[in-house]
């Protein structure tokens, strides 16, 4: 870890009482859903941290991670923060406590740039952000059903559409094509293929 990253890590530990994880030259801070908004406020405003910019926020569905049964929370939101003043970055992860109704506080009051990112995470993963002023779907079609980036949503989707010349309108029907996987997904044990 570079001295600069160490300084940020120490500052985070001192000010927030949570130890960030350093890997590959990046710091990751995990917070509970209850502390999420308060932590975000501190991260932006404290002079030693000064994360003025939220570059990215995305939903993650951990349900099939590593192809093994999952213990713990299913949905998470991962934000990437940037401080222009100090020139450092931080990854902020928060798990949704309830997988049946994933609910998190909205950061739109802290970083206005999060507006569309939260709409995207809502659209694709169904994570609801409490306090968001305009939580509409953003990328999928008008009237779309389901949250397509969840791991249990098939890549082909559920419906296909075509123009019906008799009814003179677009009709939706169940998908007719077979799902296929060209290259199977394989998780190898650690250090597979090294030595020997």
């Amino acid at each position: 870890m570079t001295p600069k990253l160490q300084r940020l890590s120490d500052a985070l530990e001192r000010l927030l009482g949570a130890k960030p994880v350093a890997r590959l030259g990046e710091l990751t801070l995990e917070v509970s859903a209850g502390d999420y908004l308060k932590t975000a406020q501190t991260l932006r405003d404290h002079a030693e941290l000064r994360f003025e910019e939220l570059m990215d926020l995305c939903g993650v569905d951990y349900s099939t991670y590593g192809d093994r049964p999952r213990q713990g929370a299913r949905f998470a939101a991962v934000a990437h923060l940037l401080s222009v003043t100090h020139n450092w970055r931080l990854r902020l992860r928060v798990f949704c406590p309830d997988a049946a109704f994933p609910l998190l506080a909205s950061l739109v009051e802290v970083w206005p740039s999060v507006n569309w990112y939260e709409r995207e995470a809502f659209d694709l993963f169904g994570i609801v952000f409490e306090g968001h002023p305009d939580l509409r779907r953003i990328l999928t079609d008008y009237g779309f059903v389901g949250h397509p980036f969840r791991k249990d949503f098939p890549i082909l989707g559920h419906v296909e559409m075509r123009y019906d010349p008799e009814q003179k309108r677009v009709v939706y029907e169940p998908v007719t094509i077979e799902p296929r996987e060209v290259t199977p997904r394989v998780v190898r044990e650690a250090h597979y293929g090294e030595g020997g």
Partner: peptide, 10 residues
């Protein structure tokens, strides 16, 4: 997650 495909790409 160590597979031959990304688990999540953003």
């Amino acid at each position: 997650d160590g597979a031959n495909k990304p688990y999540r790409m953003k």
